[in-house]
């Protein structure tokens, strides 16, 4: 059954690296910080996870140690990546770097009230 694992592993490798590339491309193409964060986080998270799991699958019959370490890294990435991108998004809003809004709807920025309230408190 060695070939099955190799096929799974190879496919995960390809998918993962493709998404890593897409993450880079997303960062490159998107128009503002929030959209870049969206593209970057999602694509690199899935890309990294599947690439690492792919390597784990490729080595699974040599030893299970690779899989164990791969799983721990994957769990860590799954927790840490969204946290860091959330922290960045919040930081950018606190720096008054408002998101790009293309449509004319006024309610599009629901967070603005909060930051305006904070500003008033600061002035007072």
């Amino acid at each position: 059954m060695s070939t099955l694992f190799e096929i799974i592993g190879g496919a995960l490798l390809l998918i993962g690296s493709a998404f890593l590339f897409l993450g880079g491309l997303g960062i490159f193409r998107m128009p503002d910080v929030y959209n870049r964060l969206q593209a970057g986080t999602k694509a690199t998270t899935l890309g990294g996870m599947s690439l690492i799991l792919g390597v784990g699958f490729l080595m699974v019959e040599t030893s299970w140690m690779w899989m164990a370490k791969a799983v721990i890294i994957v769990i860590f990435i799954a927790f840490s990546n969204p946290i860091s991108s959330h922290a960045l998004a919040r930081a950018m809003y606190k720096r008054k770097q408002y998101p790009l809004i293309t449509s004319k709807d006024e309610n599009m920025d629901a967070y603005k009230e909060i930051s305006e309230n904070e500003k008033k408190e600061e002035d007072a």
């Binding site: 491309l25 193409r29 128009p31 959209n35 593209a39 999602k42 790009l100 809004i101």
Partner: peptide, 17 residues
């Protein structure tokens, strides 16, 4: 994400809800 990034016209309509 892949669809949006790869489409040349970048079909986005961002906002905060």
């Amino acid at each position: 994400v892949a669809r949006r990034v790869l489409t040349p016209s970048l079909p986005i309509n961002p906002g905060i809800v």
